[in-house]
Design a protein around this nucleic acid. Structure first.
Length: 423
RNA sequence: GGAGAGGUGGCCGAGUGGUCUAAGGCGCACGCCUGGAAAGCGUGUAUACGUCAAAAGCGUAUCAAGGGUUCGAAUCCCUUUCUCUCCGCCA
């Protein structure tokens, strides 16, 4: 969530900026200002009352010790009044704090000044394009047909044992997945990220901290018996490593990478968008996460875009980079770049990575701070990006590299894949 | 799943109703001492909210979390949670 001080000091600016995200914050902000002022007033009154009670309790204790029981009893009468009042004030304060918090979590993150206004993908800005679009022969197949032809993926088996959106990879398909994961992790490690294998189930606190709760409740698989959530991305566990943590300034940036399974309910999706590997309930992804100094976060964002670009170039896939417009951005992001590869048989751009700077939005929720040079604690910035999501990379690789003889494997994957062509 | 023992500052660890404003130790920082270092000595060393233009200072809360008893709770009671040990199950 954004910081209360920002609301307190720049309310009109907050409302203005959130318009870029198509969010009308005026009502919430107005109420917040009232609640914040009342809360502070109440806290002051309560603190004073508690202070008086504390002093009295000490006096009473002292008097008892000195054997002046009668004087002590007189003081006791005053304490009952104080008790009554503190109880009422405490309750008021709790209510106000709760209301303030409820309002705060409804506010999306403020967009960076470079975020274009707009509602849909049409309003996203294509920042750059790389590589040339492959020309396929007339008999070119979609990746789901190729998967069948070469026995790479069995969608039917997945359907049978679980349901739609849970494919079974087999043979060269499974091996290609394994090769990609190893390649992505090795590249991330090379770029200075530390590798982790996180849990794929997280608790409520973790899901809240990175912003999945309460905003995207229905998008995650939930296990009620233990109140745990299946992660939609490794961002959730990895960023939460640093929940309630105060880092040293010299430890920044903290760069982490993790391969994990990801689970998304994708409620309401249907049609050709979800055909084949285009949209799954369970998929594989290597994620990169950074915790940075606030002054370095946009530099880190560029670096992450560069990293993912490098991966796509090495995989010889044509891709483009889009800066998302306000309406297309997530609740928690301040600035997001999407990376899209061209899938030649489908003739579509597929989103394979989303790289975002959350500034202090997540760190404020999870109390992730660092001790700055002045010795004060300051919220760090968090960022993350896919590097990369497997299924659509797989789709593009299969479609773009198909020939009459078989499917070519990019050079960079061959050491991992141990074969140059799927036949 | 059953039984038992626990959760105290960055860490170890004392503390069973009233200067707990949490002993002591370790670590860390600064200073003294030293040719330099070590040892020694001294000082300091949490987080949040509030107050203040800000800092300092001050107030309040925090001894796993929440509630209760009491004039007063780290300490007593209840609930929850987590960790450890043993048993059971188990890759």
């Amino acid at each position: 969530m954004i910081e209360i001080a920002v609301v307190r000091n720049n309310a009109p600016e907050v409302v203005e900026k959130l318009k870029v995200k198509n969010f009308d914050a005026s009502g919430i902000i107005e109420r917040l200002q009232q609640v914040d002022a009342e809360r502070r007033q109440t806290q002051k009154e309560l603190d004073d009352m508690l202070s008086e009670g504390k002093t009295l309790a000490k006096d009473i204790g002292r008097l008892f010790k000195e054997g002046k029981g009668e004087e002590a009893s007189e003081l006791k009468e005053r304490t009952s009044v104080i008790k009554q009042k503190t109880k009422v004030l405490q309750e008021q304060l709790n209510n106000l704090s709760r209301e303030q918090n409820d309002l705060m979590v409804q506010l999306p993150n403020l967009p960076h000044e470079s975020v274009p206004a707009g509602n849909t993908v049409e309003d996203n800005i294509i920042v750059s394009s790389h590589g040339s679009l492959p020309q396929l022969h007339d008999a070119a197949l979609s990746h789901w047909d190729l998967a069948k032809k070469y026995q790479l993926i069995d969608f039917e088996w997945g359907n049978k044992i679980t349901g739609a959106g849970f494919p079974v990879y087999k043979g060269f398909g499974a091996r290609l997945q394994r090769a990609l994961i190893a390649f992505f992790l090795d590249e991330a490690i090379e770029a200075g990220y530390t590798e982790y294998q996180p849990p794929v189930l997280v608790n409520e606190d973790s899901a809240f901290a990175t912003g999945q709760l309460p905003d995207k409740d229905g998008q995650m698989y939930h296990i009620p018996l233990d109140n745990l959530y299946l992660i939609p991305t490794a961002e959730v566990p990895v960023t939460n490593f640093f929940r309630d943590t105060i880092l040293n300034e010299e430890d920044l940036p903290v760069k982490s990478t993790a391969y994990s399974l990801c689970f998304r309910r994708e409620a309401g999706s249907y049609g050709k968008d979800v055909r084949g590997l285009n949209r799954l309930h369970q998929f594989d992804k290597v994620e990169i996460v950074q915790v940075t100094h606030p002054e370095k976060s946009y530099q880190a964002l560029e670096e992450m875009v560069e990293h993912v670009s490098m991966l796509l170039k090495k995989l010889e896939l044509p891709f483009r980079v889009a800066r998302l417009c306000g309406g297309d951005m997530s609740f928690a992001a301040a600035l997001t770049y999407d990376m899209e590869v061209y899938s030649a048989a489908q003739k579509r751009w597929l989103e394979v990575s989303s790289i975002s700077n959350f500034e202090t939005f997540q760190s404020n929720r999870m109390k992730l701070r660092f001790r700055n040079k002045q010795g004060k604690n300051e919220l760090a910035h968090t960022l993350n990006g896919s590097a990369l999501a497997l299924p659509r990379i797989l789709a593009a690789l299969l479609e773009n590299n198909q020939t009459e003889k078989g499917i070519n494997i990019p050079k960079v994957l061959q050491p991992y894949f141990r074969t140059a062509m799927i036949q």
